[in-house]
Amino acid sequence: MTTTSDPGAEATTTTRSAAKAERRRELLTAAAALMARRGYASVRLEDIGAAVGVSGPAMYRHFANKQDLLAQMLTEISVRLLDGGTAVVARTEDPARRLAELVDVHVRFALTEPDLITVQSRDLAALDEGPRATVRRLQRRYVDLWADTVVDVTGVDRRVGLARAHAVFGLINAAPRMPELGDEVAAAQLAAMARAALTAG
């Protein structure tokens, strides 16, 4: 016996799924903007929903509560950065080129997602222990990619490589607080300073 699927039903399901994913993305973007401006503790789920025209109760179709929203937001940031860094390492054999590309990926993220950078830097401590541990674990893996590459390029002790990576993250993540330079100039300046710090004599 064979069964045939209903193309119309499948298309409707796909459309609904895409719409739900898009609405979730809008909510996370609005949440990042509000939390970057006011802080996690001062933002309610209702505030986030209102920013994109979603009622308070409808927020619970996407997030269990505000803590769940923050956990998803910060976990996704960490996954995106780790995936980007892992892709650079996988495709780039030359260590110096790899380091430059890692810097470029992080600079681009900091300049295009300043609200997420601010929330990650300031509100990670607001996460419950379990989600915070997950984010920290992802962050450590990301830092390891950088530290290994710094060691490959410079030959410094790995502890020094780790220290340099952390220092450069602080430098790049300060992008939202920089004077307005324009993205192109800011990217060039941040990348140049980051590469100099990572490879300092």
Rank of each mutant, 00 (worst) to 15 (best):
Gly8Cys: 00
Val107His: 04
Ala33Pro: 01
Gly155Cys: 09
Ile77Ser: 12
Ala11Arg: 15
Ala30Ile: 03
Arg37Ser: 10
Val52Arg: 13
Thr4Asn: 09
Ala163Glu: 11
Thr4His: 14
Leu138Arg: 13
Ala188Asp: 15
Ala163Cys: 03
Arg195Ala: 02
Gly56Ala: 15
Val105Trp: 04
His166Gln: 14
Thr13Val: 15
Ala9Cys: 07
Ile48Gln: 07
Asp152Gly: 10
Ala18Thr: 13
Arg164Phe: 05
Glu76Met: 13
His62Gln: 10
Pro7Trp: 00
Arg37Lys: 10
Ala197Tyr: 07
Ala21Phe: 09
Asp115Phe: 11
Ala21Val: 11
Pro57Tyr: 11
Arg108Cys: 04
Leu124Asp: 02
Val153Leu: 10
Met35Ala: 13
Thr134Trp: 01
Ala19Ser: 14
Met1Val: 11
Ser55Phe: 05
Glu101Tyr: 08
Ala194Cys: 08
Thr14Cys: 03
Met178Gln: 11
Leu124Lys: 07
Ala194Lys: 01
Ala126Asp: 15
Ala50Pro: 08
Val105His: 00
Arg177Thr: 10
Ala188Cys: 04
Leu138His: 12
Arg164Gly: 02
His106Pro: 00
Arg23Glu: 08
Gln139Thr: 11
Leu34His: 15
Ala31Lys: 06
Arg132Cys: 02
Val89Lys: 04
Lys20Glu: 14
Gly39Gln: 07
Leu116Ser: 08
Ala197Ser: 07
Arg195Met: 13
Tyr142Lys: 05
Glu129Val: 15
Ala163Lys: 01
Asp144Phe: 00
Lys66Trp: 10
Ala167Tyr: 03
Leu124Val: 10
Asp152Thr: 01
Lys66Thr: 02
Gly201Thr: 10
Gly56Asp: 14
Ala196Ser: 07
Leu45Lys: 02
Val160Lys: 02
Glu46Lys: 15
Gly155Arg: 08
Lys20Pro: 00
Leu69Arg: 12
Arg91Asn: 06
Thr86Val: 09
Pro57Trp: 12
Ser78Gly: 13
Ala41His: 06
Ser5Ile: 14
Leu181Asp: 00
Arg195Phe: 01
Leu111Pro: 08
Leu28Glu: 05
His106Ala: 05
Val54Phe: 11
Gly130Arg: 12
Pro176Trp: 06
Arg24Pro: 00
Arg98Glu: 03
Ala32Phe: 09
Phe169Gln: 04
Glu10Gln: 03
Asn65Trp: 06
Leu116Thr: 03
Lys66Asn: 05
Thr4Phe: 12
Ala11Lys: 08
Asp152Leu: 11
Ala90Tyr: 08
Ala167Ile: 11
Arg80Tyr: 03
Gly201Arg: 12
Ala133Val: 06
Arg97Asn: 04
Thr13Phe: 15
Ala64Glu: 14
Tyr40Asp: 07
Asp6Val: 02
